[in-house]
Amino acid sequence: MLFFSFFKTLVDHEVTIELKNDLSIRGTLKSVDQFLNIKLDDITVIEEGNYPHLSAVKNVFIRGSVVRYVHLPANAVDTALLEDATRREAANTAAQKTR
C-alpha cells in the first residue's frame, strides 16, 4: 500500500507516465487506485508527432500493469517522510510474517 499511499499525495500534480509500449504521457494526476491504475487529465503525449491518433485525447485511464515508470515532480516528494513510510511498511510486513 506504500505506493498507493504515495501516489495519492501526487493527485493534482503533473506527472509523466511512461508505458511499457514506450509511450510517454504527461498530464495531471486525477486519481489512482490500489492497482495503481491511473487517471490523467489534460494530457499531452511526449513526441506527439509519432502518435497523431492521441492528439485529440484529453484524458486517459491507464491500467496499472502497463506502466513502466512514473516521473515524479521532485518538489512534491517528501523524501524523509517517504523513508519513514518505507520503514513502517517494512515493519508491518515483518510483523505480518511473524504473526
Binding site: 517528501d78 517522510l81 513510510a85
Partner: peptide, 13 residues
Amino acid sequence: AEDFYYQVHSAIQ
C-alpha cells in the same frame, strides 16, 4: 499503518 505517507503528507500540507 496502511496509509502512513498519505496521512502524514496531507497533514503537513
